[in-house]
Design a binder for these strands. Structure first.
Lengths: 366, 366
DNA sequence: AACGATGATGCAAACGATTGCATGATGGGA
DNA sequence: TCCCATCATGCAATCGTTTGCATCATCGTT
């Protein structure tokens, strides 16, 4: 068999196409079929539905596949089967000069990836970068049927030109507290977790608090704030005993809050930051301002990112079971993509987060 | 002919197919064509080659596209055009319980993603997890033509059943010092960077050193080690004045080295860790062992991860221009994917890394 | 021996876009 | 007036797989 792509016709007219990828030996399922002496259908089934083909035939086919190095063409498969075996992970990082994936989502993503790829799915990254244009693109990607499922690492539902991602009909799971009231979800119980922080600080004897939160319209901010305040209220402490610092979950806003804290003469004795990044930025600035943690103030973070442990002193924080969340979310998504009907309580899963005691909390100065 | 309920179509034979995605209104290019009153070819060209269609026709087509909400089917496009508009980013994280993406690659990935998606490419994540099976899958993915290009965040060339990724003929760019001698590459000058560390410590007056490196067969380890040792040698300091600690770039190995350091009575006065993660683990343990940084020992890391700045004291480290590397690598890859012929020196790009002075170095104890 | 059930395999029609070539219209130059 | 170049568009083949249905062989029952 001779291959002659050396004799290309005229280069008079520039063709519209771009050059093709290097030619592989065996590229079509039909080649394998011919080699074995069966039809393409049989090869296809041998690969996808082992039980529907004679074991002996199957063995011969697999051997031929191995020998020829044949790999099915995913595009053709996707086109015909209307199934891409890809999942889109949607997130939104701030953009230039920051990290692609926050420390928290990073480990979560790992568990998601491991679980999904074990089930045969690929992972496509869709970062919104807080830009409308990117958001449009991501929504279109899903609308075009490029992916079989979506994993949301976001607290709101992506939209584009009025259309919401939710309308696409593609299975979706969120790993952060709710983008939509009815969305399949795997996350911690935010209120309960924030409550453990409040209880811990109350037990140490604190009575005046700082709260370093997130944007007011952010679902996570609302939950953690509610849980924290409710528990304080139970102890008879009202909103007037809580100084609120604005934040956006990122380290920079933590630093700004830290500076504000230092400048404040009537400062509280304990601060709850609803992300570790903010807590870390906060700690750096208050220390710069001459205050000692935990001698002058107690500080608690949230998430339990790996670095919390390496702060000096180690940061007391709420540890989210990231691997568990990621794995469960991926499993749920796979179930949904396979069309499994699930009861409501199996579509909204809550885990407990645990307070991890580092060294940043202590009783207040007397 | 007998009629009975034993042959209910539903449960007789399970159909091979899975349910299709919800039907969209307008799904085919032909529908748009019919609406406008042109052929499918024209619509296709209007979308991909604006200059080849009458401006007025094009306007009418675009309007119809907008109205119908038509989105081209990527699978069909890929199949026919043999072009997926996807890029695979290959990396290898340790696995369960660790982060998906190391702090260093994280920011790099962001720049890569921003640049690639601006050029119209999607990003597919291929994590090897140091597992042969995953590696096989990744190599096959590329062999199957699922992606148009590969970005390697790895120091060795992935292989599967004897076949190397390099053989696939797909354009590739590496962002870590060389996977293969001839591979397009965007990275810092490792030797030069390691040399700045050596010079800094020498200038402070150190004469006995610790070196916390990586696996001996790791290209980065070799380069950084060579650069460090060569500069010491120029100052008349031989290998006998350098204690070597084994490491693997991760925080755990830094901790183990720190413990070894504490136990050692004849310890050196300055330590160079070739990753920030290791430096951070090291610092935690030596402090635990009662030593102060930088009073009792100087410590320098490598990479300049965001967290280095938030250590106490801030970690002196070599800052890599991550965004620049990521952007350049993505641009190079795009050029290669578009078939641009590039001179050798434009295919291997080196940037300078800069020593960032935190507070972990000082003159040695007298 | 006849019959139906069961199981393995093949046939051929999609899936939705791209693109080489053909066609017809238009316009400019000789 | 004729001819050829240029341009916009259409025709139809093709990319490689999956899958409903048809076919055929085999086997156990009655």
């Amino acid at each position: 068999m001779s291959i002659d792509d050396s004799t290309r016709p005229g280069d008079a007219v520039k063709p519209e196409g771009v050059q093709r990828a290097a030619r592989r030996q065996v590229t079509k399922i039909e080649d394998v079929a011919a080699l074995v002496g069966v039809s393409a259908s049989t090869v296809s089934r041998a690969l996808a539905r082992p039980e529907r083909v004679l074991p002996e035939t199957r063995a011969r086919i697999l051997e031929a596949v191995r020998q020829t190095g044949y790999t099915p063409n995913p595009a053709a498969r996707t086109l015909r089967a209307a199934r891409s075996m890809n999942v889109l992970v949607v997130l939104s990082s701030p953009g230039h000069g920051e990290s692609m994936i926050s420390a928290f989502f990073n480990e979560l993503l790992m568990a998601v990836d491991l679980t999904l790829s074990a089930a045969g799915y690929g992972v496509l990254l869709g970062n919104l970068y807080q830009s409308a244009e990117r958001e449009e693109r991501v929504v279109n990607l899903v609308a075009a049927g490029q992916v079989d499922g979506v994993l949301l690492m976001l607290s709101r539902m992506p939209k584009a030109s009025g259309r919401s991602l939710a309308e696409s009909g593609v299975p979706m799971v969120s790993v952060t507290t709710p983008a939509a009231p009815d969305l399949p979800l795997v996350a911690i119980d935010e209120e309960a977790a924030a409550a453990t922080v409040a209880r811990h600080l109350l037990e140490l004897g604190h009575r005046r608090f700082g709260y370093l939160g997130g944007p007011a319209d952010h679902a996570i901010e609302q939950r953690r704030h509610a849980g924290f305040m409710a528990t304080l209220a139970e102890a008879g402490i009202g909103a007037d005993a809580v100084v609120r610092y604005p934040g956006d979950f990122r380290v920079g806003s933590g630093r700004r809050a830290g500076q504000a804290f230092v400048a404040d003469r009537t400062r509280p004795s304990a601060v709850f930051a609803i992300s570790d990044e903010m807590a870390i930025g906060f700690m750096k600035e208050v220390r710069q301002g001459g205050l000692a943690v935990p001698a002058d103030l107690s500080l608690v973070g949230f998430d339990g990112i790996p670095f919390a442990e390496f702060c000096e002193p180690p940061l007391t924080t709420v540890r989210q079971p990231r691997e568990l969340i990621g794995r469960s979310a991926a499993e749920l998504l796979v179930a949904l993509m396979q069309g499994t009907e699930l009861a409501a309580e199996r579509r909204r899963i809550r885990f407990d987060a645990e307070l991890w005691l580092g060294g940043t909390t202590a009783p207040p100065r007397t």
